[in-house]
Computed example of a mutant assay.
Amino acid sequence: MAALNYNHLRYFWAVAREGNLTRAAEKLLISQSALSIQIRKLEGQLGQDLFERSGRQLVLTEAGRIAFDHAESIFATGGDLLATLKQRSGGRRSILRVGALATLSRNFQIGFLRPLLGRRNVEVIVRSGTTAFLLQSLEAHRLDVALVNVAPARDAATPWVSHPIAEQPVSLIGTPKRIGKGGTLKKLLTGQPLVLPTMESSVRIGFDALVERMGWRVRVAAEIDDMAMLRLIAREDIGLAVVPPIVVKDELTSGLLVEVHQLPQLSETFFAVTMKRRFPNPLLRELISPHAALELAD
């Protein structure tokens, strides 16, 4: 195979960073047609299409995202060389792009990412958003993995795969003052105001089914879709919270909140959603594996 033409690679890198051929050509001080020719030569050598058009924008294909990551690493290494010779510190880093549902427990996210956090050679980029935003970002190769608590619907035309990585029980949790001496599950659920996830949550769906089966009437003090806010509301003693204990792990450890009952047949499953890719990010192997899932669930 002929040696890689690094001029072609740098031109590709510039276009990928700009997302626009015209702007990249202006910055590189060459014509747009000449730049297009260089990109096509690189695609011919690699045997892969690197861009596809989306309106006036150029969007990286999967092969394009891989080439871009390598180009970033290659030119960063060049910067490292200059820094070393000029007695400045530097270092190559692997990058993992993670998306998380905006309402997902921060404690869960940290637990999932813990094997990579703090490594000198790894950079973790975390973005939050809706499920639709996360799936669109996966398809556009802007994310390597998305963390959600409801597996997205899938059919033969959808390219993503949902990996169950942890299942957490759901409990009734409140302040020591509100819980007092405790009591039966029925007494607490029917006698105290409740702080619940919103109707879209799988936890809420399961909880509503539970009280319907039991024939109990409950009083809802607040419905909250953000786990961080639900955690704060529970601490403010607005009512008893129906929540996975991992969400309020720190408060349970400190005694600020108490777990009084684990709700029967009710749990929350966490999923890592990835795309079917020829070139998956190798860092994912450390996070999405049976061993990693067991550690997280413990």
Rank of each mutant, 00 (worst) to 15 (best):
D208T: 11
T184G: 14
L135R: 14
G255R: 07
V258P: 09
L266C: 02
S128A: 10
T130A: 06
V243F: 02
G206E: 01
L210H: 02
W216M: 02
A234C: 05
A209Y: 13
A221K: 08
V248L: 07
V150L: 00
G239F: 10
V203T: 04
Q265E: 14
E167A: 00
V148K: 00
G239D: 08
P169H: 12
T198E: 07
A221H: 12
V260T: 13
L172P: 00
D144N: 00
S201Q: 05
V247I: 05
V220R: 01
S254F: 00
T130S: 14
E139S: 14
S201I: 08
K177W: 14
V248S: 08
G255A: 06
L172A: 01
I173R: 01
L172E: 01
T175V: 04
M229Y: 13
E251D: 08
I233F: 15
E212D: 12
V243G: 00
I179H: 06
M229F: 15
V148C: 02
P164I: 05
S137T: 09
A221I: 03
S267V: 09
L147D: 04
V242R: 08
P264D: 00
L196V: 12
D144E: 05
S171D: 04
D237E: 14
V211W: 09
L263V: 04
R154Q: 15
R213K: 15
I238V: 11
L232G: 06
T198V: 11
A156W: 11
L134H: 10
R217L: 11
P245W: 02
V170E: 05
V220C: 02
D144T: 03
L210Y: 13
A153N: 08
V150Q: 11
K186Q: 15
W216V: 01
T253Y: 01
G215L: 08
T198D: 12
D237Y: 07
L240D: 05
E167S: 00
L240A: 07
P176W: 00
G191M: 14
H141M: 08
A156S: 13
D155Q: 11
V258T: 14
G215R: 07
S254M: 07
P245Y: 04
I224A: 01
L135M: 13
M214Y: 06
E139P: 10
G215H: 07
P152G: 10
R235C: 15
V203W: 01
